[in-house]
């Protein structure tokens, strides 16, 4: 199964990225205009232009508020989260040489949920909840990474097992926190947070995580060829001259920052970090240099579509994670079957 020479591959890459960008732009425009509150495209443009140029837009204040404070942050957040979760999935899969790894298996999501739950329990504000979620995710991964070092068995297998253990422990702790929470208000809030949703996102939230996630993404992109080498396995990579420990650590740190940032914005969203890298790999091949941008675009697009669906379809807004699961799981099974048939 050949894929053409260098020039053809470049062409394919440009085409794929180009198509994805156009699709993304289109869906963004559509997403700004649809929703339960009726806004015409013309009004949308007026409002956005008004905000950018600091002139009055001539539309009703409620319309302005809906477009600028409800929809725009939500759209940006879902694109950002989708892109970051996908890229972190690509990175984890490379580091652990396993296309079945998902971003949350090192315990980021579980740890973040605990952080958020504690914040909700103590009735801290929304900003503090996000911060605690972020810290919780980082602490969980730190524990996961330290266990293999502490028992002097610093291999990938040990890391995976450690992640499973930490994740399970975190679930128990979360269960306990839920148990002590006030069922009327706090329990519901914790559950909603855990299920993942974009509905109360504000621009400030996005801006506070954007720099960090941007840097992490850039570092991963710069290291993308080395990630290829790393994905050959520790021994092979080392014998080829890679500083395996350093590369692995950098990659895990960046991927974790991306995931933790996403979780603290929008709660736990599963399947995106698993399905999107897989799908991208089927289209542009396993080279991380190509895979990272394509996954980012595809992930952002996917997340935006799903989130827009959750807030426009049906009378009650569904948490986003449910829909990603409903779409993601069967699609993943389909991908696996297709892969098997192709004789892989």
């Amino acid at each position: 199964m050949g894929r053409g020479n260098q020039k053809n591959r470049l062409l394919l890459l440009l085409t794929v990225n180009g198509v994805l960008l156009i699709l993304l732009a289109t869906v963004v425009v559509v997403a700004v205009c649809v929703g339960k509150y009726a806004v015409t495209p013309a009004e949308c443009l007026k409002v956005i232009w008004g905000a950018v140029s600091h002139t009055p837009s001539g539309c009703a204040p409620m319309t302005e508020n809906v477009v600028l404070m409800l929809r725009l942050p939500r759209i940006l957040a879902s694109v950002l989260v989708g892109a970051c979760l996908s890229v972190s999935g690509v990175a984890y899969q490379g580091v652990f040489q396993n296309p079945l790894i998902a971003p949350d298996f090192l315990g980021v999501s579980s740890g973040a949920c605990i952080g958020a739950a504690v914040a909700i329990l103590l009735s801290l504000g929304r900003g503090s909840t996000q911060l605690m979620a972020f810290l919780g995710g980082i602490v969980a991964v730190a524990i996961t990474v330290l266990i293999p070092i502490a028992i002097r068995n610093n291999t990938n297998i040990m890391l995976v097992l450690s992640g499973v253990v930490v994740g399970a422990a975190a679930s128990s702790v979360l269960g306990f926190i839920k148990f002590t929470a006030d069922p009327e208000s706090q329990l519901a809030a914790i559950t909603y947070w855990t299920m993942g949703d974009f509905s109360y996102i504000q621009m400030d939230d996005i801006l506070s995580v954007l720099p960090m996630m941007g840097v992490a993404g850039v570092v991963l992109t710069l290291n993308s060829w080395w990630l290829d080498v790393l994905s050959m396995g520790e021994n092979q990579a080392r014998s080829l001259g890679a500083n395996v420990t350093l590369l692995r650590n950098i990659t895990i740190v960046c991927a974790t920052l991306l995931t933790a940032g996403s979780v603290c914005l929008a709660g736990t969203i599963s399947w995106v970090g698993l399905v999107i890298p897989h799908l991208s790999r089927m289209i542009v091949g396993p080279n991380n240099t190509r895979l990272i941008p394509v996954s980012a675009l595809m992930g952002g697009l996917f997340m935006l579509v799903v989130d827009t669906l959750t807030r426009t379809i049906g009378a009650i807004e569904m948490p986003v994670s449910i829909l990603t699961g409903l779409i993601g799981a069967p699609f993943y099974i389909y991908l696996l079957i297709r892969n098997k048939r192709a004789g892989a």
Binding site: Q97, M232, Q236, G285, A344
Partner: peptide, 11 residues
């Protein structure tokens, strides 16, 4: 090496 289990289909 004797064997090279490769997880991804690099060319």
């Amino acid at each position: 090496p004797q064997s090279m289990p490769v997880a991804f289909p690099y060319t």
